[in-house]
Amino acid sequence: MHSNVNSSQLHSLEDPYHLSEEQIAAYQSNGHIMLRSVASAEEINSYEPAIEQYVRQHNHHTKPVGERDTYGKAFIQVGNIWQQNEAAKRFVLAKRFAKIAADLMGVNGVRLYHDQALFKEPGGGHTPWHQDQVYWPLDTKHTITLWMPLVSISEEVGSMTFVDGSHNSGYMTRQFISDESHKTLGSYIAGKGLPTTNYGAMSAGDATFHAGWTLHSAPGNPTDQMREVMTIIYYADGTRAMEPDSSARENDLAGWLPGVKPGELAVSPLNPLLYSR
């Protein structure tokens, strides 16, 4: 583990965060929810420096923001940090977050699919409309992503924008994140007059949770502050891997579910059980 953080200073993130029946119902109906203070300011402050430093060291972008393609402009993306960094490991494997994921989905247990830091640089572009689960070879609708800013983000950067109830439509498009997906899905949303939600400004430690099939996008970053966000993807324990129907799903099967064959339980050393009733 490479880390210059004294792990005794890291807060535990074990104690539960209590959800109301209304919150669970809202998530299940909309496919997304925003929860305040899922981690406290003190807790975030104990983790942010190590995660931020790791992401900065592993940023593979060599060109300035303005010279990259849409996907490259959208964020600095670093995955599977939990295996490389002690602070990230404690954060990603946190029982508190995993229990919220299980409670919102109404399942008995959740496993880790993978983590991902998504840092949007000053001047960073928008994240086009997309569904996450087109990338995942997971044979379940019970998938969920925690999206938590490690620094406060202003109204103009805001949360992601979600299409309410879109998780019930399942597979809507084969398109991956691109200008094309943004245009096609954008006109579909507008044409159908689908309701969307953006939660606006968020404090460090607030979090949104959204289902794998929930259609979403994110605005660019017009500020001079880095938008530091950590994401953790969970799926219901007992989920099986599916036969990949795209190169993206083939890559994901090999990368995030090593050794697992289609039809088998989605369990590998990279997918620990993080919470179980």
Rank of each mutant, 00 (worst) to 15 (best):
N30C: 10
E156K: 12
E228G: 02
V134H: 03
F209A: 04
K183Y: 06
A87L: 11
M34D: 01
L13M: 15
T214Q: 03
T223F: 06
D115V: 04
E155G: 08
F209L: 04
F209R: 03
N221I: 02
K141P: 03
F209T: 01
R68F: 13
G109W: 15
Q28P: 11
D179E: 14
E121L: 03
Q133D: 15
G109I: 12
G191Y: 05
T140V: 05
G106V: 00
K73C: 09
L194P: 00
F75W: 09
I100W: 00
D252R: 06
D164K: 14
G72A: 09
R240T: 10
Y275D: 01
R90A: 11
H11R: 03
N251W: 13
K89N: 14
R227W: 13
G212Y: 01
E250C: 08
S46G: 13
H210D: 00
L257E: 06
A254W: 08
I189S: 01
N168L: 15
Q116E: 11
L93R: 07
N4H: 15
L10Q: 10
G158H: 04
N30H: 11
V163T: 13
S276I: 13
D103N: 02
G191K: 09
F162G: 01
I100S: 03
Q23N: 13
N108T: 11
R96A: 03
L146Q: 11
P244W: 02
G263A: 06
R111H: 08
M172L: 15
G109D: 12
V65E: 08
H61G: 06
D115L: 06
W129P: 05
R96E: 03
Q116S: 08
H216K: 06
W147L: 13
T197G: 05
G109L: 10
S12I: 08
T208R: 00
E243W: 04
H126V: 11
G170P: 12
S166P: 08
E43C: 11
I76V: 15
T62Y: 15
P128F: 02
P262C: 05
T62Q: 14
I44A: 09
S37A: 14
I153S: 10
Q23H: 13
H167M: 07
V92F: 12
G255C: 02
P272C: 01
M230E: 09
E250I: 07
V163Y: 09
V134I: 09
S246H: 11
T127E: 05
H210Y: 00
N6H: 10
S37F: 04
G31V: 11
L10D: 12
Q77P: 06
E48W: 10
